[in-house]
Computed example of a mutant assay.
Amino acid sequence: MAGIKDVAAHAGVSVATVSRVLNDSPRVSRETRDKVQAAMRALRYRPNAVARSLRTEATRTLGLIIGDILNPFFAVLARAVEDEARAAGYTVVIGNADERPEQQDHYVRTLLEQRVDGLLICPTAEITPLVEDGVRSGAPVVFLDRTLPGLEVPSVRADGTEAIHDLVRHIHRLGRRRIAFISGPELLSTGRERTRAFHDAMRACGLDIPGEYVEAGDFQAASGRAIAARFLDLPEPPEVIFAGDNLMALGALDEIRSRGLRIPDDVALASFDDVAWFVHLDPPLTAIAQPAEELGRRAVRVLLDRVEGRPVESVVLPARLVIRRSCGEGETT
Protein backbone atom coordinates (compact mmCIF):
# COMPACT_ATOMS: atom_id res chain seq x y z
CA MET A 1 0.00 0.00 0.00
CA ALA A 2 1.35 3.40 -0.99
CA GLY A 3 2.53 5.70 1.79
CA ILE A 4 2.94 9.43 2.10
CA LYS A 5 6.56 9.24 0.92
CA ASP A 6 5.45 7.48 -2.26
CA VAL A 7 2.90 10.23 -2.93
CA ALA A 8 5.53 12.90 -2.39
CA ALA A 9 7.97 11.20 -4.79
CA HIS A 10 5.28 10.68 -7.45
CA ALA A 11 4.18 14.33 -7.23
CA GLY A 12 7.72 15.68 -7.02
CA VAL A 13 7.10 17.54 -3.76
CA SER A 14 8.19 17.18 -0.16
CA VAL A 15 6.50 14.98 2.44
CA ALA A 16 5.65 18.17 4.35
CA THR A 17 3.76 19.50 1.32
CA VAL A 18 1.71 16.30 1.06
CA SER A 19 0.92 16.63 4.77
CA ARG A 20 -0.25 20.21 4.23
CA VAL A 21 -2.60 19.06 1.44
CA LEU A 22 -4.01 16.32 3.69
CA ASN A 23 -4.70 18.89 6.39
CA ASP A 24 -6.23 21.45 4.01
CA SER A 25 -3.55 24.02 4.69
CA PRO A 26 -4.04 27.36 2.88
CA ARG A 27 -0.26 27.52 2.38
CA VAL A 28 -0.44 25.22 -0.66
CA SER A 29 -1.07 26.60 -4.15
CA ARG A 30 -3.92 25.25 -6.26
CA GLU A 31 -1.44 23.85 -8.81
CA THR A 32 0.52 21.95 -6.16
CA ARG A 33 -2.65 20.73 -4.45
CA ASP A 34 -3.97 19.35 -7.76
CA LYS A 35 -0.63 17.64 -8.43
CA VAL A 36 -0.61 15.95 -4.99
CA GLN A 37 -4.24 14.86 -5.27
CA ALA A 38 -3.57 13.40 -8.72
CA ALA A 39 -0.67 11.41 -7.25
CA MET A 40 -2.94 10.11 -4.47
CA ARG A 41 -5.47 8.91 -7.03
CA ALA A 42 -2.82 7.30 -9.22
CA LEU A 43 -1.32 5.42 -6.27
CA ARG A 44 -4.68 4.76 -4.65
CA TYR A 45 -3.33 6.32 -1.49
CA ARG A 46 -5.62 6.51 1.54
CA PRO A 47 -4.64 8.60 4.57
CA ASN A 48 -4.27 6.80 7.90
CA ALA A 49 -7.18 8.33 9.83
CA VAL A 50 -6.02 6.92 13.15
CA ALA A 51 -2.54 8.38 12.81
CA ARG A 52 -3.94 11.71 11.71
CA SER A 53 -6.30 11.84 14.69
CA LEU A 54 -3.40 11.27 17.07
CA ARG A 55 -1.60 14.24 15.56
CA THR A 56 -4.52 16.62 15.29
CA GLU A 57 -6.68 15.40 18.21
CA ALA A 58 -9.60 15.31 15.76
CA THR A 59 -11.18 12.26 14.16
CA ARG A 60 -13.70 13.98 11.85
CA THR A 61 -16.37 11.70 13.30
CA LEU A 62 -19.56 12.48 15.20
CA GLY A 63 -21.55 10.14 17.40
CA LEU A 64 -25.36 9.88 17.25
CA ILE A 65 -27.32 7.93 19.87
CA ILE A 66 -30.99 7.56 18.94
CA GLY A 67 -33.92 6.31 20.98
CA ASP A 68 -35.23 3.54 18.72
CA ILE A 69 -33.92 2.77 15.26
CA LEU A 70 -37.20 1.02 14.33
CA ASN A 71 -39.17 4.23 14.85
CA PRO A 72 -39.61 5.96 11.44
CA PHE A 73 -39.13 9.38 13.05
CA PHE A 74 -35.65 8.45 14.27
CA ALA A 75 -34.78 6.89 10.91
CA VAL A 76 -35.51 10.19 9.12
CA LEU A 77 -33.64 12.08 11.84
CA ALA A 78 -30.54 9.87 11.49
CA ARG A 79 -30.56 10.19 7.70
CA ALA A 80 -30.60 13.99 7.95
CA VAL A 81 -27.79 13.97 10.51
CA GLU A 82 -25.65 11.80 8.24
CA ASP A 83 -26.32 13.96 5.18
CA GLU A 84 -25.46 17.21 6.95
CA ALA A 85 -22.37 15.77 8.63
CA ARG A 86 -21.07 14.28 5.40
CA ALA A 87 -21.48 17.64 3.66
CA ALA A 88 -19.28 19.14 6.39
CA GLY A 89 -16.63 16.44 5.98
CA TYR A 90 -17.62 14.29 8.95
CA THR A 91 -18.58 10.64 9.35
CA VAL A 92 -21.39 9.65 11.74
CA VAL A 93 -21.29 6.59 14.00
CA ILE A 94 -24.81 5.61 15.11
CA GLY A 95 -25.83 3.79 18.27
CA ASN A 96 -29.35 2.53 18.96
CA ALA A 97 -30.22 2.97 22.66
CA ASP A 98 -33.48 1.02 22.21
CA GLU A 99 -34.94 3.32 24.90
CA ARG A 100 -32.74 1.65 27.55
CA PRO A 101 -30.48 3.77 29.78
CA GLU A 102 -27.86 1.03 30.10
CA GLN A 103 -27.61 0.67 26.32
CA GLN A 104 -27.41 4.44 25.95
CA ASP A 105 -24.51 4.47 28.42
CA HIS A 106 -22.74 1.71 26.49
CA TYR A 107 -22.73 3.87 23.40
CA VAL A 108 -21.76 7.02 25.29
CA ARG A 109 -18.74 5.20 26.71
CA THR A 110 -17.81 3.56 23.40
CA LEU A 111 -18.11 6.69 21.29
CA LEU A 112 -16.16 8.88 23.71
CA GLU A 113 -13.44 6.22 23.93
CA GLN A 114 -13.28 6.27 20.14
CA ARG A 115 -12.64 9.99 20.46
CA VAL A 116 -15.54 11.27 18.37
CA ASP A 117 -15.33 15.02 17.96
CA GLY A 118 -18.87 15.55 19.22
CA LEU A 119 -21.91 13.62 20.39
CA LEU A 120 -25.63 13.97 19.57
CA ILE A 121 -27.86 12.20 22.10
CA CYS A 122 -31.62 11.57 22.04
CA PRO A 123 -31.61 10.93 25.81
CA THR A 124 -33.51 8.20 27.57
CA ALA A 125 -35.70 8.90 30.56
CA GLU A 126 -33.11 9.75 33.17
CA ILE A 127 -29.73 11.33 33.80
CA THR A 128 -27.21 8.49 33.88
CA PRO A 129 -23.70 8.76 35.38
CA LEU A 130 -21.98 8.36 32.02
CA VAL A 131 -24.07 11.04 30.33
CA GLU A 132 -23.51 13.38 33.26
CA ASP A 133 -19.76 12.67 33.35
CA GLY A 134 -19.49 13.17 29.60
CA VAL A 135 -21.25 16.54 29.80
CA ARG A 136 -19.27 17.73 32.80
CA SER A 137 -15.98 16.67 31.19
CA GLY A 138 -16.52 19.32 28.56
CA ALA A 139 -17.07 16.93 25.66
CA PRO A 140 -19.14 18.64 22.93
CA VAL A 141 -22.63 17.22 23.50
CA VAL A 142 -25.99 18.32 22.06
CA PHE A 143 -29.35 16.79 22.96
CA LEU A 144 -31.61 16.00 20.02
CA ASP A 145 -35.43 15.71 20.15
CA ARG A 146 -35.45 15.39 23.97
CA THR A 147 -33.97 17.17 26.97
CA LEU A 148 -32.82 16.18 30.44
CA PRO A 149 -33.68 18.65 33.22
CA GLY A 150 -30.69 19.31 35.43
CA LEU A 151 -28.04 19.28 32.70
CA GLU A 152 -27.05 22.49 30.96
CA VAL A 153 -26.78 21.09 27.45
CA PRO A 154 -27.90 22.82 24.25
CA SER A 155 -30.73 21.01 22.53
CA VAL A 156 -32.46 20.88 19.16
CA ARG A 157 -36.10 19.80 19.38
CA ALA A 158 -39.60 20.36 18.07
CA ASP A 159 -42.47 21.95 19.99
CA GLY A 160 -45.83 20.34 19.27
CA THR A 161 -47.86 22.43 21.70
CA GLU A 162 -49.62 24.63 19.17
CA ALA A 163 -50.13 21.73 16.77
CA ILE A 164 -51.86 19.72 19.53
CA HIS A 165 -54.12 22.72 20.20
CA ASP A 166 -54.86 22.85 16.47
CA LEU A 167 -55.75 19.15 16.48
CA VAL A 168 -58.13 19.41 19.43
CA ARG A 169 -59.79 22.50 17.92
CA HIS A 170 -60.17 20.65 14.60
CA ILE A 171 -61.79 17.64 16.31
CA HIS A 172 -64.04 19.94 18.33
CA ARG A 173 -65.22 21.73 15.17
CA LEU A 174 -66.18 18.36 13.72
CA GLY A 175 -68.56 17.87 16.64
CA ARG A 176 -66.60 15.20 18.50
CA ARG A 177 -66.24 15.62 22.26
CA ARG A 178 -64.92 12.38 23.72
CA ILE A 179 -61.19 12.37 22.96
CA ALA A 180 -58.85 9.80 24.52
CA PHE A 181 -55.07 10.19 24.55
CA ILE A 182 -52.39 7.47 24.50
CA SER A 183 -49.59 9.50 26.01
CA GLY A 184 -45.87 8.78 26.02
CA PRO A 185 -43.80 7.87 29.08
CA GLU A 186 -43.92 10.52 31.80
CA LEU A 187 -40.17 10.13 32.35
CA LEU A 188 -39.41 11.36 28.83
CA SER A 189 -39.52 15.10 28.15
CA THR A 190 -41.53 14.48 24.96
CA GLY A 191 -44.07 12.41 26.89
CA ARG A 192 -44.54 15.12 29.51
CA GLU A 193 -44.76 17.95 26.99
CA ARG A 194 -47.40 16.26 24.81
CA THR A 195 -49.52 15.27 27.80
CA ARG A 196 -49.44 18.79 29.20
CA ALA A 197 -50.34 20.27 25.81
CA PHE A 198 -53.26 17.85 25.40
CA HIS A 199 -54.73 18.74 28.80
CA ASP A 200 -54.31 22.46 28.10
CA ALA A 201 -55.92 22.13 24.66
CA MET A 202 -58.91 20.20 26.02
CA ARG A 203 -59.47 22.78 28.74
CA ALA A 204 -59.21 25.61 26.20
CA CYS A 205 -62.04 23.99 24.21
CA GLY A 206 -64.13 23.38 27.33
CA LEU A 207 -63.90 19.60 26.95
CA ASP A 208 -63.86 17.11 29.81
CA ILE A 209 -61.03 14.61 30.25
CA PRO A 210 -62.25 11.54 32.18
CA GLY A 211 -59.36 9.88 34.00
CA GLU A 212 -59.83 6.66 32.04
CA TYR A 213 -59.36 8.58 28.77
CA VAL A 214 -55.63 9.20 29.31
CA GLU A 215 -53.13 6.38 29.68
CA ALA A 216 -49.35 6.30 29.18
CA GLY A 217 -47.77 3.98 26.64
CA ASP A 218 -44.09 3.41 25.92
CA PHE A 219 -43.83 4.68 22.32
CA GLN A 220 -44.17 1.08 21.05
CA ALA A 221 -46.97 -0.40 18.92
CA ALA A 222 -47.91 -3.09 21.45
CA SER A 223 -48.71 -0.51 24.12
CA GLY A 224 -50.79 1.50 21.65
CA ARG A 225 -52.86 -1.55 20.81
CA ALA A 226 -53.37 -2.59 24.44
CA ILE A 227 -54.42 0.90 25.54
CA ALA A 228 -56.73 1.35 22.55
CA ALA A 229 -58.42 -1.92 23.52
CA ARG A 230 -59.05 -0.64 27.02
CA PHE A 231 -60.46 2.62 25.66
CA LEU A 232 -62.81 0.78 23.31
CA ASP A 233 -64.00 -1.55 26.09
CA LEU A 234 -65.18 1.36 28.25
CA PRO A 235 -68.95 1.69 28.85
CA GLU A 236 -68.73 4.99 26.98
CA PRO A 237 -65.80 4.59 24.56
CA PRO A 238 -64.13 7.65 23.06
CA GLU A 239 -65.10 9.09 19.71
CA VAL A 240 -61.44 9.87 18.93
CA ILE A 241 -58.17 8.18 19.89
CA PHE A 242 -55.10 10.40 19.71
CA ALA A 243 -51.81 8.48 19.93
CA GLY A 244 -48.70 10.20 21.26
CA ASP A 245 -46.40 8.79 18.57
CA ASN A 246 -46.57 6.96 15.25
CA LEU A 247 -45.86 3.44 16.56
CA MET A 248 -48.59 3.67 19.20
CA ALA A 249 -50.92 4.97 16.48
CA LEU A 250 -50.10 1.89 14.43
CA GLY A 251 -50.97 -0.33 17.40
CA ALA A 252 -54.25 1.51 17.93
CA LEU A 253 -55.05 1.14 14.23
CA ASP A 254 -54.50 -2.62 14.44
CA GLU A 255 -56.88 -2.87 17.41
CA ILE A 256 -59.57 -0.79 15.73
CA ARG A 257 -59.42 -2.87 12.56
CA SER A 258 -59.37 -6.16 14.47
CA ARG A 259 -62.79 -5.23 15.89
CA GLY A 260 -64.25 -4.47 12.48
CA LEU A 261 -64.70 -0.81 13.39
CA ARG A 262 -64.66 1.87 10.68
CA ILE A 263 -62.43 4.96 10.78
CA PRO A 264 -63.70 7.66 11.23
CA ASP A 265 -67.36 6.56 11.36
CA ASP A 266 -67.07 4.41 14.49
CA VAL A 267 -63.95 5.96 15.99
CA ALA A 268 -61.55 8.59 14.68
CA LEU A 269 -57.76 8.24 14.94
CA ALA A 270 -54.92 10.77 14.97
CA SER A 271 -51.18 10.52 15.61
CA PHE A 272 -48.37 12.65 16.91
CA ASP A 273 -45.56 12.15 14.33
CA ASP A 274 -46.39 11.94 10.68
CA VAL A 275 -45.05 9.03 8.62
CA ALA A 276 -44.72 8.90 4.83
CA TRP A 277 -47.02 5.91 4.49
CA PHE A 278 -49.85 7.51 6.54
CA VAL A 279 -51.14 9.01 3.27
CA HIS A 280 -51.57 5.50 1.84
CA LEU A 281 -53.86 4.25 4.62
CA ASP A 282 -57.59 4.07 4.05
CA PRO A 283 -58.53 6.60 5.24
CA PRO A 284 -55.29 8.62 5.32
CA LEU A 285 -54.27 9.42 8.88
CA THR A 286 -54.43 12.89 10.46
CA ALA A 287 -51.09 13.54 12.14
CA ILE A 288 -48.84 16.12 13.74
CA ALA A 289 -45.69 16.38 11.65
CA GLN A 290 -42.35 17.17 13.24
CA PRO A 291 -39.67 18.71 10.99
CA ALA A 292 -37.39 15.68 11.42
CA GLU A 293 -35.04 16.48 8.54
CA GLU A 294 -34.53 20.07 9.64
CA LEU A 295 -34.02 18.94 13.24
CA GLY A 296 -31.23 16.61 12.12
CA ARG A 297 -29.52 19.24 9.99
CA ARG A 298 -29.73 21.94 12.65
CA ALA A 299 -28.45 19.56 15.32
CA VAL A 300 -25.28 18.90 13.32
CA ARG A 301 -24.70 22.62 12.84
CA VAL A 302 -25.13 23.32 16.55
CA LEU A 303 -22.80 20.44 17.44
CA LEU A 304 -20.11 21.59 15.01
CA ASP A 305 -20.32 25.08 16.48
CA ARG A 306 -19.62 23.50 19.88
CA VAL A 307 -16.76 21.43 18.45
CA GLU A 308 -15.18 24.54 16.97
CA GLY A 309 -15.69 26.64 20.10
CA ARG A 310 -18.34 29.00 18.81
CA PRO A 311 -21.24 30.15 21.04
CA VAL A 312 -24.43 28.13 20.61
CA GLU A 313 -28.07 28.38 21.58
CA SER A 314 -30.78 25.76 21.77
CA VAL A 315 -33.12 25.45 18.79
CA VAL A 316 -36.89 24.88 18.97
CA LEU A 317 -38.80 24.29 15.74
CA PRO A 318 -42.61 24.16 15.46
CA ALA A 319 -44.52 21.00 14.57
CA ARG A 320 -47.62 21.33 12.37
CA LEU A 321 -50.97 19.64 12.03
CA VAL A 322 -51.66 17.71 8.79
CA ILE A 323 -55.42 17.14 8.42
CA ARG A 324 -56.51 14.01 6.57
CA ARG A 325 -59.70 11.96 6.52
CA SER A 326 -59.17 9.78 9.62
CA CYS A 327 -60.91 12.36 11.78
CA GLY A 328 -63.81 12.89 9.41
CA GLU A 329 -62.85 15.69 7.06
CA GLY A 330 -61.31 15.86 3.60
CA GLU A 331 -57.55 16.09 3.24
CA THR A 332 -55.87 19.47 3.65
CA THR A 333 -52.47 20.65 4.82
Rank of each mutant, 00 (worst) to 15 (best):
L232S: 08
S14Q: 07
G260M: 09
I127Q: 13
L64C: 04
S14D: 10
T61K: 07
A201D: 10
G175W: 05
A249R: 04
P283F: 00
L281S: 09
A125P: 00
A229V: 01
D68E: 14
R41S: 15
V81N: 00
V116R: 04
D274W: 03
E132P: 13
T195S: 09
R225E: 15
M1D: 12
V141F: 08
A42F: 00
G118Q: 02
A216Y: 00
T59Q: 05
L119A: 00
S53K: 07
I127N: 10
E102R: 08
V156Q: 05
I127E: 15
G175R: 13
L247K: 14
G260L: 11
E329L: 06
L70Q: 13
G134W: 02
A249M: 12
P284F: 01
F143K: 08
E132Q: 15
A51S: 12
K5I: 09
T17C: 04
V312G: 05
V240R: 02
F73S: 06
P311Y: 02
V322F: 03
P318N: 14
D166H: 13
T56L: 14
G296L: 02
H172M: 01
T332Y: 03
I227Y: 01
A268R: 12
L43C: 09
P185S: 14
G211K: 10
V316A: 03
L64H: 03
V307Y: 01
T91P: 04
A252L: 11
G160F: 00
L43Q: 12
G184A: 06
A8P: 09
F74S: 02
L77E: 01
A249F: 09
G63S: 06
G191P: 05
D159Q: 12
R115V: 07
A216C: 11
R33Q: 13
A226H: 07
R52K: 15
D159Y: 05
V131M: 08
W277A: 00
A78E: 04
P284E: 12
H280P: 00
Q220D: 14
E126S: 08
D166C: 06
D159L: 10
A85W: 00
R192H: 03
R297K: 13
G63F: 03
L317M: 12
A319K: 07
